[in-house]
Design a binder for these strands. Structure first.
Lengths: 126, 126
DNA sequence: TTGACATGAAACCATTTGGTTTCGTATAAT
DNA sequence: ATTATACGAAACCAAATGGTTTCATGTCAA
């Protein structure tokens, strides 16, 4: 239970290259919007909207200082990604491709022993 | 150097929840399109398009068997994600928030010691 | 107090995305 | 030979996305 109902999920937030660059830029500390947008070839408003999306995903925090708003990285939500990834790590030790796993699971290779349409992924998130 | 010029990048490919479910479903082995689409509340064609996107990102492989096309997981491209994530791991040990890092880096907190606008992220991908 | 700076909100726009239905074609089954 | 199955391609559509410009507001500086 980190942020309450994050309007944007982490997967979407990091899907955009500009937003990934934003995260990287904010790694070194707090920066106000104008300075941040100076690093990008688009309007300040556009950058501001990206920052909003990152904030909605919990990946950046903001703080008002006088007339400026400073943003900083909060990497914590990336742990969700880490957990998601961990599930797949064993599959890229290509000691076992999906094909091989299938064949070895039962030697049939014909018939209809496909995933039973129910009882598959009983209820895990994704 | 895995796939040559992947038309879709991994970040985008996994941004969609349906596609993440597809990956999970294909973990256990090869499946033909019709069986796959049976697990989703949308048309076969829609699922097929998702599979195409995953294939473009290198996350699934396909194989023609008679009149069917069977898809299987290829987790290898997820290693890129893993590397990307690794960069941020040290930041979610919240022993040090971005704010703290900034303050401790130099005690100024005023002035203009913001990221120098050049010499920032000299040339790393994202 | 007057003007400049920092920012978000709003309205708008083109393109991409995620979905649909319809159709053509290759393969398998009768 | 005919029919049924598996699939992708194409045309289409609504909504989301990534961007723009303009405007209003709050804060700092002269």
């Amino acid at each position: 239970m980190s942020a309450a109902s994050p309007k944007h999920d982490v997967f979407q937030a990091i899907a955009d290259r500009t937003r990934r660059k934003l995260l990287k830029l904010l790694v070194d500390g707090e920066l106000p919007v104008t300075v941040i947008s100076g690093h990008f070839p688009m309007s300040r408003t556009a950058v501001s909207k990206h920052l909003r999306i990152l904030a909605d995903a919990g990946l950046v925090k903001e703080r008002k200082v006088g007339r400026e708003t400073r943003f900083r990285l909060d990497a914590e939500p990336l742990q969700e990604l880490k957990r998601w990834l961990a599930y797949y790590e064993r599959y890229w030790d290509n000691k076992m491709s999906a094909l091989q796993r299938y064949v070895e699971a039962d030697e049939v290779m014909d018939d209809k022993p496909y995933a039973p349409l129910d009882a598959v992924n009983p209820e895990t998130k994704d």
